[in-house]
Design a protein around this nucleic acid. Structure first.
Lengths: 160, 160
DNA sequence: TAGAACTTTCAGAGATTTGTAAATTCTCTG
DNA sequence: CAGAGAATTTACAAATCTCTGAAAGTTCTA
């Protein structure tokens, strides 16, 4: 089987997994297409054709992926079309987004504690929750930062 | 406003957030009901009534929550009904599940690398991905373990 | 072991989501 | 600055998902 086809299949497979995990299916397909493509970047038209979806769908997907820091628009000299590419450091951005969820969970726990009080069955349950998310938030942020740093140094000489 | 109502509202609010994040709505509502309830545990009938859903829906939700390690069936002496309660250590279990996703991502990156080779545009993109998930997996597992340990010690004397 | 009390499964109705096609808006270029 | 080439938005249609109600299955007790 040729390389292109293997990559396409890997892309679709990962997209399916991501969709299972809550990401919208088309959004996931656009993301993985850009991740596994052999081109430096792809135009909206490329994506339409390869994925057999309408330009509207591409537009929607892109609108969701850019704020997540997963892809970026890249200026394409000589072409009037927008080009998109998978971002350097995308994964760290994605993980950071998930940190926001950790904070939300902590706040939800606190809210319940305020209502129920610490000394109750509910209070004990929520206290564990609050502690856990406080701990995770505290630990995860430096973890991501240190990776960013490590990676930046390691690849300083091979930057695009 | 009374305590019960504040807790119910907090529960619904968190359920909505979780639903946005990809969890099924009813599943999320069952989970948060068990998290914020003032009772030690709830029966399927309790959940039906409080959430205004059918017993079939409860059954489905429970079937999804138990494997995630979020809730558990508890034997209820003197009652023939199943009782459910939010699990101790649920949050650590949940986070562990997400680690499985990290492994999947790493594998997906490897698969692409095998097809594209390291020395290509695609190869460099996928290499970053692989490194990131390898790093996160490596770091996150001990993090959760150490929390489990810490929490177990801290609460050894106040166990249910 | 018969029967009662629950739980689970399943088919179909209803609701929501999501993609398409077309209209609109935006943005370059000549 | 007019117009062509793209991207985005919107309204609608199609597909999917998810809950309910009812039937079937389980499990405990008498």
């Amino acid at each position: 089987m040729d390389t292109d086809q293997r990559l396409r299949e890997a892309a679709e497979k990962l997209a399916l997994t991501l969709a299972q995990g809550g990401m919208q299916k088309t959004t996931a397909r656009v993301m993985t297409a850009l991740l596994y493509t052999r081109q430096e970047s792809m135009t909206a038209a490329d994506l339409c054709e390869q994925l057999s979806i309408s330009s509207g769908a591409v537009s929607t997907a892109v609108k969701q992926l850019i704020p997540l820091g997963l892809i970026e628009r890249v200026p394409a000299p000589g072409s009037r079309r927008d080009h998109y590419r998978f971002r350097q450091g995308a994964w760290a951005s994605l993980m950071s987004q998930q940190n926001a969820m950790l904070a939300t969970m902590g706040a939800a726990a606190q809210e319940g504690l305020d209502a129920a009080g610490e000394d109750s069955i509910t209070g004990r349950r929520l206290h564990e929750m609050k502690d856990f998310y406080a701990y995770m938030t505290e630990q995860l942020i430096p973890l991501i930062d240190s990776w960013r740093e490590r990676y930046a140094v390691q690849h300083a000489n091979t930057a695009r």
